[in-house]
Structures are given as C-alpha cells and as structure tokens.
Design a protein around this nucleic acid. Structure first.
Lengths: 364, 364
DNA sequence: AGGCGTTGGGAAAGCGCGTTCCCACTGCAT
DNA sequence: ATGCAGTGGGAACGCGCTTTCCCAACGCCT
C-alpha cells in the first residue's frame, strides 16, 4: 500500500489536482475557503504526505543541504554539524550527511551524490590537503564542485579554499584565521615559557595543520625564539599519541643526562595542531609516567567541547565551531540580510580566542 | 545552466533515452557494446549526473536512510551516527539527519519529513519518554511511524520500543539490556563499596533512564542493600552538574557533622544513568573541592569515547554504540543473511560489559 | 444592456527518469 | 524461400507534483 497521492486527495475532495496542490502547498493563488476546507479534510482523511521527490522534481529545488565531514564522531566535526543542522532546521531544509575520512576521492564522490540529489547547498568541512599524492583527487574534487556550482549549486567551505577550484558564483568560504591565531598563541606561550618548543602536526600538506604550524613558528620568531622542531603524525588522537610516545622517549633521555633538572621548571612546551592530537599526546605522556604541566607543557587548537572535562585544563585556541557551521550554511543561502551578494565572497569572518589553561601553567 | 539530462545525453549519442538509461544505469537489458560506448562517452562529455530525485520517483526507492537523534554533538549519538553512516555507505545509501532534542513532537515531524522524502528506512535513537506530558506527542509519533511502516517503510529503533506503536512489519528493535547491565553494575559496586548509594537519573519517564535505575536498584537488592535514593535532573551533562552540586552540599554537611570521617573510605557511591551526567556530576564535585574517588565514588553508563581521556577513569557499562548504529540500520535492510524475516522481530541482541575503573576504586 | 477587468477553477504540459510494450531485424531450421 | 525464436532498439506511458495557460462566471462601469 503506497502512500496516497495528491490526485487521490483531489478526487476525494472533488476538485482538480491543480487546486489540491494550490491549497496544500504554499501557492501564490489561494482557492476559495470552501474548497480549501474540503481539500484539507480529504488530505487529513487519507493521511496524505506530499512526495518531496516529486515536488523537488517539479520545482527543481530539493530542500536538501549536504554536509561533508571527515568523521561525524569527532567532536570537532560534530560541533560543526550541530551548527549546520540548526540553520537547516530554521530554513526548513534537511541535512544529508557524508563522512569521508578526509580522502579527496571520497569527498568527490560525496559531492557527486549530493549533486545527483540536487542538494541546494553543500557544506564541506575538514582540512584540505595539498599533498602530491592527493593532487589528482583534489583536482577531481575541484572539478566536481565547479560543475556543481555551474549548475546553480552553492557550496560553503570551512577553513580554506578548495585547492584548484575556480572562483565561481555560489562559492563561499568561511575563513578561519588559523595562522594569525597560532602566532598569537605562540606569543603568549613564549611570554611565560623560556624553554624549548616542539610542534606536533598532521602530515605535511594538510593545510589547516600547515597554517597553524607556520603561524606558530612566526609567532615564536616574533618573540625572538628559534623555530620549533616539527613532529608529523596523523591529524587525530592516534597521531597525537604516537608523537607523545616519541616525546616521552626524549624526556626520559633528557632526564637521564641531566638528572639535576628533576623537579625543575619543565623545559619543553608542546604545541599540537589540534585538540585531539593534544589529548592523544597527553595520554601517551601520562602512560609513560610524565605529568602535565609538571614535566612538560602542552597546548592544542580548536577548544572542542570535550575539553571542558579534560584534565589538566588544556590551553588552546577557542574556535566557535558551531557558529562556523552556522555561517557556512548561511553563506550558501543567497545574499545575506546585509545585502552583500553571494558572489565568491570570502564570507563572514570568524575569529578565535587564545585560551590559556593549566596545561601550560607551571606551578612549582 | 541546469545539469544535463539523460535525454540530452541520448541525443548526443544518437540513441533514444531508453537506450541511454539502459546503459548508464544497471538495467537487465544490455545494449550492444558499440552503442554503450557511444552513450558513455556522451555522458562523460556532458558531465551527466543522473537526477536521483527523478530516479527515485520512477522506481519509488530513494536510497535514503533517515537518522533521528537528540543531539548530533553528543558523543553517545555521534558514535551511533558513525555506525549508521558506515552501513549506509556500504549499501550505497545516504544518511538524512534530524536532531530533535528528544521532543516527541519534533520526532514526529522528522518522521513525516523522512516519509515525504520516501526514505527507505528510518533509524531512531535516543530514549523514548513515557511522561504524561509527552503522551500526546508519543501517540502522534507512533501514528506517524505506523503510517510510514504501512506504506512500506522500515524503522529501526535503538533501545526500547516506541510507546504505543503497533507491531507492524518493517518494525525493528535493537534491544539494549539496560536493566540487566545496570543490575550487574550495582552488584559489582556493592561488592567493593560498603557505604550508601545514590542514583542520578534523567527525568522520570525517560525510559532508558528508568530502566537503568530500576536495574540498579534490583542489583542492590540482590546484594542485600537498601534501595538508593534517586536524584532527578536533565539527562545530559548540565543535569549531571546540577545533581553534582546537590551532592556536594550533602557531602559538606556530612563532613561537618562527622569531621572524624575526614580521609576515611568514601561513604558515598554515585551511579549516574549515563556517562555525560557522570561527567557533569564529577565536574560539579570537583568545582566544590571534592575529589573522585577520594571523597566519593561514581559510575556512569555507555562508555562513550570521550571517557578514554577522562580522569579519573570512569567506571561504566560499555555499550558497543557504533555497532548498535550498524545493527539498527542493518535490521531495516530486509531479512538478514541468516534468513530470518524482518517481521517485527526483536532484532539482533546487543550486549554490554561492566567496566570498573578508578572512579570507583578507593585507594587509601 | 454590453463591454471589460477580475476571480476561481480546470486542463495540460512538463520536471527527468524507468519500464513496458512493440517493432524491425537477424540467424537458423525447414 | 518461408517460418520461427531471439535480439537490439525506440515510442510511449507513468511516477507525483507544479505551473502556465485557458475558460467560465461574476461584478462593475458607462
């Protein structure tokens, strides 16, 4: 038993499908009150639910917004997803979800799938990659997005522009000042920490990671400090854990060569390119018997919600993730109320806030 | 410039739309190799992307899976979402997301929206409510789901049956033995803790919460312990925090009346009906100067991923959340490979595992 | 009273695709 | 040469809805 159709409703109400359509869905023309009532009752009696597919086909607008993330269970992405979801709800749209693990090929596939469903907009979150091995995938992704835009789609990108994507209409960017904020963080850390700095980052070519590292280094330089060594690992908790193990080894060695420093002010401050890496690194250090901030200082980036209950309080850069999701989605919804055109703009500016907590506070 | 259509491709290839359809989509009939090649090239040249809406309309199957959660940024739900997403991906379907905050009225609306989009299946996660004030909302939700099922939809419910929903075909349930597991947890805690127990639960009528509380109480009874007092708050971190403040007050009073007990084995063991509440309660206690497990013991439920980095290690009941999401989705996909019919079955059984960690270990 | 603008409703043409039915044509046996 | 089954392709319909166009009826003015 298939769901009842508009035609059935119309027949029951004794009117034409056209009229039924006019009363049940918002049309410019309002049929007379008597007719409307009859149609509405018929619809109610039949439990009529309009077929959104057919509606979309007829008016070529699907009411769908596609969201592409690396991993929906990652707090960073789920916070953004919440923002996207909120706006979609306000606009009476539905969110179509795709998780890709960050692989450009999968992302391209997701865009194609969204395009096939004629999604009104696509929001794509998660760091872009500039690695050589991803070059082809990126090019294909860019091509797919370009095609989508050319066909009238809107895409909102979180973070940084898609490598190789054209400057098209309907192409929006929510820029996150990763570099500036990382520099600011470096400056503040340099003010209170006199020892070495080490950076834990994602694989080279992950743009978000690279931006933050570059910013951090320039911040150090501005404070008259030497550049920090950079450890590469995967851009998630596991990567942070691996890097943490390596650093533990290093700390152990240092302790052996200069046992006199035991109990002294920690000589090392770690900057992880995102919070989950920082958390992983902290876990590794702890597993190896080291304590934060007693034996080393550490800072992250993002201020994911999880941090609220993470001990010690992790110094980080607060990013309004939910708001970012909101903005990315809003930017795809045509010109804002301020009248600015949605014309390959660089979108609304987001800012973050350096937030120092106990993980970088040395206490004797 | 709208996306190119199948007809355009056919024209460019010099064949009929029917033939083009046959070669580009899996049809039973395979056109000759020469024709196929021409069509494929034409499609490539035009950047043809089939209109999924039209396809869905034509063959009445949308390739959509609807997922309903309370809050996508809650680790409990995002873990389930990940599982759902995985299965959807394997089945070449897309996930449609709706967050409702747990309001039955919103859930009903979401079901209607999914039904309108002719989603092949709906997975609904998050505790049901049996509160009187939700009775009407529940009834409407149940009616909506029934209608959806009657129209050939499949729904997978996580946790417990929808209150008032009929026993229809296409109605599947992934049952979580909340009660049994809570009882088991109570037993194990009673074995090592001789003092009082207090339960922090969600509002009365939240079935998941109620089940766990009931199980915990019966576990205590089985161990020859008196029933624990139950504190009610909202079923999230904030609720846990509120309850934690109340308990802190209580601990302070106890300390004042019997200062001799200072430093003694903690007299109180808290059971929070889920992990985020436990985390909130812990935060509140900590803010009030109490330490876990020094001043009080605490256990949660779910073993959300966040716990991995939460200190002290939180005793809990491990639930395979991602797997639960997988199973709920799989259960909607027709009879499993084991041949069992998808006939209002009680679905695949899930089990959990009591996991004791430091938060309930008293160390002198 | 006749012309004209206005209103309320229906008929019909798509939207883009899948699918059934039908036809022209081939290869083989008779 | 004629019959047949078998094959590759096209015409046409339908999926459920929106929307344009058209027509009848009505009220108003001069």
């Amino acid at each position: 038993m298939a769901a009842s159709t508009l035609t059935e409703v119309a027949r029951l109400a004794g009117v034409s499908p056209a009229t039924a359509s006019r009363v049940l869905n918002g049309s410019a023309r309002k049929p007379g009150p008597g007719v409307s009532e009859r149609v509405r009752q018929a619809a109610e009696a039949l439990g009529y639910i309009p077929n959104a597919q057919a509606q979309a086909l007829a008016k070529s607008s699907s009411g769908l917004v596609g969201l592409i993330v690396h991993d929906i269970a990652d707090p960073y992405f789920s916070a953004i997803a919440r923002g996207v979801q909120e706006v979609a709800r306000e606009q009476h749209k539905m969110v179509l979800l795709a998780t890709t693990g960050g692989t450009p090929a999968d992302e391209k596939e997701a865009v194609a799938a969204f395009a096939a469903r004629r999604a009104d907009a696509i929001v794509i979150a998660g760091s872009r990659s500039s690695r050589p091995e991803d070059a082809q995938g990126n090019a294909e992704l860019a091509a797919e997005l370009d095609r989508y835009c050319r066909n009238g789609g809107h895409v909102g990108v979180v973070g940084q522009a898609i490598v190789g994507a054209g400057a098209l209409d309907g192409y929006h960017l929510v820029e996150v000042p990763n570099e500036e904020l990382a520099a600011e963080l470096a400056g503040k850390l340099a003010a209170s920490h006199s020892g070495d700095f080490v950076v834990i980052g994602g694989p080279e070519g992950l743009i978000t990671s690279d931006d933050r590292i570059r910013g951090f280094q320039s911040g150090l330089a501005a404070a008259g400090r030497p550049a920090a060594e950079v450890l590469r690992a995967s851009f998630n908790r596991a990567g942070g854990y691996d890097a943490g193990l390596a650093l533990a080894e290093r700390l152990r060695n240092a302790r052996q060569t200069e046992p006199a420093n035991e109990g002294a002010r920690p000589d090392l401050c770690i900057f992880a390119a995102n919070d989950v890496m920082a958390i992983g690194a902290t876990a590794a250090l702890r597993a190896q018997g080291f304590r934060i901030p007693r034996d080393a200082l550490i800072a992250g980036f993002d201020d994911i919600e999880t941090l609220r209950d993470f001990r010690p309080g992790l110094s980080t850069v607060r990013l309004p993730l939910e708001e970012i999701g909101r903005l990315a989605t809003l930017s795809t919804a045509g010109p804002g109320p301020d009248g600015t055109e949605g014309h390959h703009d660089d979108g609304p500016a987001v800012t973050g806030q350096v937030t120092l907590r106990r993980s970088t506070e040395w206490t004797a």
